[in-house]
Amino acid sequence: MTGADAARPGNTPAAAGVGLGVTPIKVDIWSDIACPWCYIGKRKFEAGVAAYGGEVEVEYHSFELSPDTPVDFDGSAADFLSGYKGLPLAQVEQMIERVVTIARSVGLDYDYDALRQTNTVKAHELLHFAKTHGKQLEMKGRLLRAYFIEGGHVGRVEDLADLAAEIGLDRAEALAALTEERHLADVREDQKTARDLGINGVPFFVFEGRFGVSGAQEAATFANVLQQVAAQRDEVVPAGADA
């Protein structure tokens, strides 16, 4: 991923970059699908990568914010937060209004009226499936768009298989992987790593396995962090040496 193709799906990009190190900066991102700040943070991170201008390799990891959410919740997002989670309705409405406004500021048209609250563990399994086929970033973007913008269901395996097919993955294979829980252990491993790292909230970004950045930071912050990480790595690895 470079500044020019920050939003484009892919795996490890070819080593490139002048004066910014010869290997991509690895960024591991813990996030959930049902996480408005994760989508906003993704946009801001990608803008930060663009401003940084060097090579970045991104890998997403699983984090379930609400693992007790049923696959099929009968009601709106406001119903879920007020009725199921017990928050005051006025606070919920204020929260939704605020997050919709902020999402719009980064070009995301959240539709909370259409949003279908669901359990996201299967979506996380699908992200691991997509990763094995080199399409994790594309899958992540597709799932977030389906959930927050299109009113799609990201909890049912048939719907998830449809989304997988939309980005060019084999629908039948994706469906089998989800039904057989082939990647559930990968999800659990991500969650254990998050606990080991002390990650309590998402989005959470880990740069080169050493530096942590919590939350939907501004693009300039991400760019600054990338520059710091690159500078520190350059201090360790002499210019011209293989990293």
């Binding site: 309590n200 939350g215 939907a216």
Partner: peptide
């Protein structure tokens, strides 16, 4: 910076 934590 804003994050999502826990159930909500």
């Amino acid at each position: 910076a804003v994050v999502c934590e826990g159930d909500v």
